[in-house]
Design a protein around this nucleic acid. Structure first.
Lengths: 366, 366
DNA sequence: GTGAAAGCGCTAACAT
DNA sequence: ATGTTAGCGCTTTCAC
């Protein structure tokens, strides 16, 4: 089954060959160990290990020698051996809904950069917003013996994933999710949604609809809806409608038509607040197909602040989340957990980006 | 330094406790090994190992017992131990320019899904189009002992990354890149660019400019430029201009202005062919800022076919690459390498998506 | 069909 | 400042 049989045999040969002859056959694809280097450098394996992990402990001279020998042979310590012995893989797991949404790509890069800067690697897994996949992804990362997890869950209140996690003593922090029981890094979703409703109200909108994906698959969408409704009530607007779509990333044209070109057009919302930017773009595109232009005929706004939102024509009005930072800070919090600390939950600042997709409400108010 | 000292001591206690008493304290956060399960199931460790790896070798009865005991204790074999002993991590490395571009996110998901379906995991690293980061990313994945690599390189002809790889005997396949010396999975970049030029020519465009990022950082952009130029020559169009931007993902408004509102406006290109969709969106946005509307005043098209391109208003005219498939097929090829096969390079079909960003050339032909 | 024993590459005590 | 020793959790001959 294992294809490299022959290669391995060859390696063994090279290995003993090299230890006998002192020449350095630079390319002879070796699988050297710390022991080989130790022999060549005239020190013990432990000292070689220290050269890579605690170089400060060694005499400068010894360190140089070991480094030189290692470099000559192109030797790098095998992390698998190291992980097994030390009990730490120095790898963090990151679970995200989907990398088709560049917002999560940014988050990944934020986490990746922070992790690398601190000697850790990150292993991502995407869930496609599916609870089962989510649990599988976490299990897989646990199997890989990651030192901790950064999670964006569908529902951080009750999910199979969290039950799984409860059985381990693996530190984890949530990203984007807000939770009363676990450290998280996110924006204040309710407040952000509330801000957007205020803006809409200021432009004269009194009938607003929230367009989202399935609420069961995203507590963020739920919080945003709640925040919007709260603010609408406070400002005396009409009850915020809710239009859930089958997907988090694609609008359903029929549902939109039903909502807008319905008998009582007078009662149709004048603004559609979408729970993420991808969805907002899709909504705008669908509206276009229905003969409605944004923002002339109807206002639309999003949530996320993906880079792309600013490139749309007109630019999308949206709430910017600091995704790169969310990733980086979540990573920082997780590393703090690994040090035994209990990091506080962080609500990072959001920012309302006023693009060109919201206009003053046209239809005479009710 | 290691924070979990106390937890570990506690675990040792639980461990012996559990082996003495037969009850199953479901939550007592264990770190059991195959040996503990073996003892509980009244078999040898080797048999437990077989239960997980070669279940077919065991008597149904034994297998059941081991599975049952494992489930009770929530035991899962430690992949680190397994990797060390077997010499395979069953993990593949994936190196991509950036996950801020959803095209690469799709590619990742394609690879991830294919890998999972075949018992492998994938570890991604992003390079930000920087050669040094690229080499570091590859080194890091090698250190993790991945079984093979899928790479999207800046330059698959000569790069520090490939020199690094030459010293290992680690299988790898290229994705998006085309190479004469290594298995790859991509579209035919030159042919695709040529198709787009044909379309532009059919709409009456004779002066076309290619807008790209730095060519040194992307052989794809280079091939697309070459393909476009070849076809332009064949069709008797004017020489294709080349407008390189500092970034692969953001246009430089000044450069665009210089090109378009120059003294000799009559000689300005009537169509801008961007080497990727993100850049095309940015170009359109910049043009808007310069008072030019697309496609009325000038035509623009992209390359990639990211989902988002179809949601723009008007939808972006672009070349669709099957990114999910590129990821999946590259993964398949890599797994084939691991079986000792030498997979053929694959050029997957591209598709010209006719959106609304190309209009008939307006300015009287020269 | 299952067991016994060795060892993958490394690090952590402990010694000196 | 460095060496010795044991063993992390697992798989793999080789026996039986």
């Amino acid at each position: 089954m294992h294809p490299l049989k022959f290669g391995q045999v060859e390696n063994v040969f090279n290995k003993s060959f090299q230890t006998r002859v002192s020449g350095v056959p630079h390319k002879t694809s070796q699988r050297l160990s710390i022991i080989d280097i130790a022999r060549d450098a005239g020190v013990s394996p432990a000292t070689v290990s220290r050269a890579f992990n605690r170089p400060d402990l060694l005499k400068a001279d010894t360190l140089q020698r070991i480094k030189a020998v290692s470099r000559e042979h192109g030797f790098r310590p095998n992390r698998v051996g190291s992980s097994l012995r030390s009990g730490s893989t120095r790898t963090l797991g990151l679970v995200l809904p989907t990398l088709r949404n560049p917002v999560f790509g940014e988050c990944f890069e934020g986490a990746e950069q922070y992790a690398h800067a601190h000697g850790y690697s990150v292993m991502v897994a995407s869930t496609g917003y599916a609870p089962v996949t989510e649990a599988d992804a976490v299990q897989s990362l646990i199997d890989h013996q990651v030192d901790g997890l950064i999670l964006t869950l569908g529902n951080p209140a009750r999910s199979a994933t969290l039950r799984l996690l409860a059985g381990q003593d693996l530190p984890y922090v949530l990203a984007y999710n807000e939770s009363s029981t676990h450290p998280f890094v996110s924006v204040d979703n309710a407040a952000a949604a509330s801000d957007m409703v205020s803006l809409l109200a200021a432009r004269g909108h009194r009938r607003i609809a929230i367009v989202s994906g399935p609420l069961t698959a995203s507590d963020r969408a739920r919080r945003r809806l709640a925040g919007a409704r709260g603010q609408a009530r406070k400002l005396g607007l009409e009850e915020v409608l809710h239009l859930p779509m089958a997907s988090h990333t694609a609008a359903d044209s029929d549902k939109l038509r039903e909502l807008l070109s319905a008998p009582r057009k007078a009662r149709a919302p004048t603004a559609l607040f979408c729970s993420n930017d991808l969805l907002a773009a899709s909504v705008i595109s669908c509206l276009r197909g229905l003969g409605l232009s944004v923002p002339t005929d109807i206002s639309v706004c999003g949530f996320d602040g993906m880079t792309f939102a600013g490139l749309m024509v007109p630019p999308l009005t949206t709430i910017e989340q600091p995704s790169h930072d969310i990733g980086a800070r979540a990573c920082a919090s997780l590393l703090a957990c690994l040090q035994g600390e209990t990091p506080p939950s962080l609500r990072l600042a959001h920012r309302l980006i006023s693009g060109g997709t919201i206009a003053a409400a046209t239809s005479a108010a009710s």
